[in-house]
Each structure stands twice: as C-alpha cells, then as structure tokens.
Simulated scan of single mutants.
Amino acid sequence: MSEPQLSTRVRVEPLDPIFADMARAWAERLGLPLQGEADFALQVGAAGLQLVELVEHGPGPVRVDFVEGAAAHRRLHGGGSGQMIAKAVGVQPGVRPRVLDATAGLGRDAFVLATLGCPVALIERQPLVAALLEDGLRRAAADAEVAPIVARMQLHGADAIELMQAWAGEPPQVIYLDPMFPHRDKSAQVKKEMRLFRPLVGADVDAPALLAAALALATHRVVVKRPRKAPAVEGVKPAYALEGKSSRYDIYPKKSLKPGD
C-alpha cells in the first residue's frame, strides 16, 4: 500500500482515561499528536486499537479481530482447503507452503492461510494499518483456540518491495499480493474500510514493481488477487487464473509444489 497522504490528519486518543498511557505510547511510536484537529482518530480502549473517521454519520470504526465475528465464522465454516485462496496458493494433501503476504492489510487472507496450516509472513507498510494488525495479532495470541493459528503469522512493518529485495534467510515458496484497487463491491463492510483507508493508503501505483520483486523472490509461485473484471498487473502475464464471483486469483507458477518441499 502507498504511504499516508500528507493532507490526512490523524490523532491518537484514549477511549477512557485508564488508557491514556497506552495512547501516549502509540502516539510517540507513530509520530502522531494526542489532540488537535484531525480527520481520523486511532482510538485505544478495552477492545484494543480501532481507527475511525471523525465525521458526522461516519462509517464506524475498523479494528482487527481474529477471535470473533467474520474471522471466527470463516475459520469454523469457511470451507477449509476447498477455498479458492487455498487452491490459489497450492494447498493440497501434504503441502502447506510457506507464504509471504506482501500486502497484508487487515490480515484476513493471511489468517485464512494460517488457519489451514501455512506459515505466513506478513508485510504491511502503512503504519496505521500495521498497528491495527499488530494489535489484532496480540489479542488473538491470548485466546486459547486462536493462539496456535496466529503463532504461524509473523508481521513485518516495512516497505514490501524493499524487504523482498533485501530478503534474508529462507525465501518464501509462495508470495501473495492483493494490491489496492478501486473496488466496486457494494457491501457495507468493504465500503466502510475503503472509505477509511483510501485517504490513508492511496492506490498501489507501484504494483508492477511489487510483482517483479515477488517473482524474483518466490521459489514456487506468485499469486495476485484482483477484482474479477480488473486487468492483470502490468508486467509478466499470469499463466492462468482462478475466478470467483467477485475476485480472481492470477497465478504465476515457477515450480511445482510437492510434499516434502
């Protein structure tokens, strides 16, 4: 995702005075003010961090929750290894590839893959989004059922292209990309998150460079998630695609995934 837009003002605020020290720590870490005029607020409360737009009749706060809500429903009833994302990254009997999600966002897709048993490294370069994700992972680690899943998830707050180009250690077998795109999805949840994040993250104008870096690093394949009717990312053409009702997974294979790899 792109860097925050300079015109967007964000402050940190506690939802209760008992969270004042925690709010101050986040403000110092992110270089944000604790008061003053702002377009958005990163709020600290009993339920962790949440980001909210400070407008009348706004879309409501966004937070990361891997324990309850949609994440829990998909974990319990999402279809397991039959899900399209599982097929896209190469999950099969005896194969749980090491995945790098280089555009982690709120971590939903990475959590699905970790639920299926894949070790997943996550990169998120927008500091506010990375903070929400870090907080969600921390809270999930305290839940007995979800802790073993998030233990397979390792978050990096960094620029994905730079980190991939300077990758140290064993390279990922699969790199998963979901670049920001002008979504036309009409669901309330997507509209809320897009309204919140669009001013903060912009569009992924460097998606071609992101794809090139991923292709240079991944040992087995690169997967790019796109809206179903969107063009492929500029550059190398995908070998094939898996298409669903609203999304499409463009596959760039390099080597077959086999048990024991």
Rank of each mutant, 00 (worst) to 15 (best):
R108P: 01
I85C: 12
M84I: 14
V120M: 13
V112W: 07
F111A: 08
G136A: 08
R139I: 02
G82N: 13
I85N: 12
G107W: 08
L54V: 04
A141D: 13
Q83V: 08
E56W: 00
L122P: 08
P93C: 01
A70F: 03
A140G: 12
P59G: 13
H73Y: 13
A144I: 14
V129R: 05
G82C: 04
A70H: 06
G94C: 07
V91D: 10
L122I: 12
V89T: 09
A110L: 03
L113K: 12
G117L: 13
R74T: 02
G58V: 03
A72N: 00
R75T: 02
G105Q: 09
G48F: 09
A130E: 04
E53L: 05
L100D: 04
R74P: 10
E53C: 07
R138Y: 07
A110V: 00
G105K: 03
F111K: 10
G69N: 05
S81V: 15
E56L: 04
G69L: 02
L133R: 11
I123N: 02
E134S: 14
G48P: 07
Q92V: 10
D135R: 03
V112K: 05
G90C: 11
A47I: 00
A144Q: 15
L132G: 02
G90N: 13
L51R: 00
Q126I: 05
V112Q: 04
V67M: 03
C118D: 05
T103G: 09
I123H: 06
R75P: 05
A70G: 00
E53W: 06
L106P: 03
D101L: 10
E134G: 14
A104V: 11
L116F: 03
H73T: 06
H57K: 09
R74W: 10
P97L: 06
L100P: 05
V62G: 00
A86I: 11
L49W: 01
D143W: 12
P127C: 08
G107M: 12
Q126W: 08
G117W: 09
G80S: 12
L51E: 01
F111T: 11
V67K: 02
F66I: 11
V120Q: 06
A88K: 13
A131I: 14
A47S: 15
H57T: 00
V120T: 13
G82Y: 12
P61N: 03
L100C: 14
R75M: 06
G80C: 11
G105H: 09
H57W: 00
G105F: 01
P119I: 13
F66N: 08
L132C: 06
T115V: 01
G79Y: 12
A131T: 10
H77D: 00
T115M: 01
P59M: 04
L132F: 03
A141S: 15
L122Q: 14
T115Q: 03
G82M: 08
L76D: 14
A110E: 06
A70P: 10
V64N: 03
A46T: 12
R98D: 15
L49V: 09
G78V: 05
R63D: 01
P61E: 04
